[in-house]
Design a protein around this nucleic acid. Sequence first.
DNA 1: TTTGGAAAATAAACACTGTTCAGTATATTT
DNA 2: AAATATACTGAACAGTGTTTATTTTCCAAA
Lengths: 212, 212
Amino acid sequence: MHCKQFNVGIIERKEREKAEMRRRIVDVAIKMFVEDGYEKVSIRNIADKIEYSPATIYLYYKDKDQLLYDVQTEAFATLATEFLQKVNSRDPFKRLEQLAHAYLEFSRNHPELYDLMFIIKAPMNAVMDEEKWKNGDPAYDALYNLMQECIDKKLVKFKNATVGTLSVWSFAHGFISLNLRGRCVKVSGVSDEDMPAVMDEAIKEYLRMIKA
Amino acid sequence: MHCKQFNVGIIERKEREKAEMRRRIVDVAIKMFVEDGYEKVSIRNIADKIEYSPATIYLYYKDKDQLLYDVQTEAFATLATEFLQKVNSRDPFKRLEQLAHAYLEFSRNHPELYDLMFIIKAPMNAVMDEEKWKNGDPAYDALYNLMQECIDKKLVKFKNATVGTLSVWSFAHGFISLNLRGRCVKVSGVSDEDMPAVMDEAIKEYLRMIKA
DNA sequence: TTTGGAAAATAAACACTGTTCAGTATATTT
DNA sequence: AAATATACTGAACAGTGTTTATTTTCCAAA
């Protein structure tokens, strides 16, 4: 109970080491996601790769959901980077098209990350009911602000930015998730190779329709 | 190797009993899905409820995926029934609206079934890569044929029935699945109670947009 | 420099999961 | 009644997330 910690340098190093360990865990987890798929990501597998005991992970994360939440954070950071790179047009509506295209491309290049970000339940269990889910904010806000600008400049038919944002997002997510889960190809008769083209056409058509 | 079964009545009864047992298993499984959620549906839980050993279930189903596939079949039958009841207008475009509404309503009344039908991976593992997924066909065809009729009568903007069908379906599924997975409410600022209204409005707006 | 105590890591266990298999009980045929 | 085929199950295997008691490591005071 008595205060016995005097060396500030050491507690700082300890905190640094704690953060480094969390980084190591998340890095391995995200790598396993991308390389081996969601199924292979177990606490024991992660522990094996970082050469620690499974119990050690629980010294750094309360449970698996909390860990997956941090992995999700990382995945959203990747998406944000790609948005910044690819959404750069002067014309707001063109930026909307670029954003949609970047979103689709991300889902194709990182399907396992997309899963974790938008489909899988687990990481959301780490978010308590009262508090807010912050991971999705930058990506959502990027679309929302763009939508608001398009509405203000009368470039789209939407009157309400929230409805417009959710509509565009849902349209893209619907296609992507149905496809990722094998519901799309296996029922529509569209071949696996042609699916991306169909999706591109549908998105293009949709964006043409919402244009004012 | 020699043919030793002579009593046809008995083998017929055996087949009947086998079918009855499969029914009992599927019925309990679907009941557990609806009542307790996907998470609680384990082979052991099902076995407990039907008062048989877990190993017995494997005499009737190769694995859990095959069982979930049969549960999915049942769920799609429920959806088909609701379609038949609620999609009855003379006007094809109105039928399209009715279909969309019925789809949304189904997802709200049976979220766990919706999950199994359109989101969860497992039941699709039972479908081999070469063969077709038949469960979704009646529902997909209902929308597809309706879409084709609307195109033929120039009631919608779509030129291609497949693109039109997948677009409408994806739009609805996107909203529903983002919402079911807690991605929608926790990022948009829309309250949990207002979400259905926002979805209804968005769908209404979309249907207005695709109208020729 | 040795000792006392805090902090970090772990082995082992618990309660689950899907699945398999050897062995038992039941039903049918010979 | 004996032999055989069918139906069923207990126990085990290999895996999961998680907890706890124990050991190892590390740092500060005596």
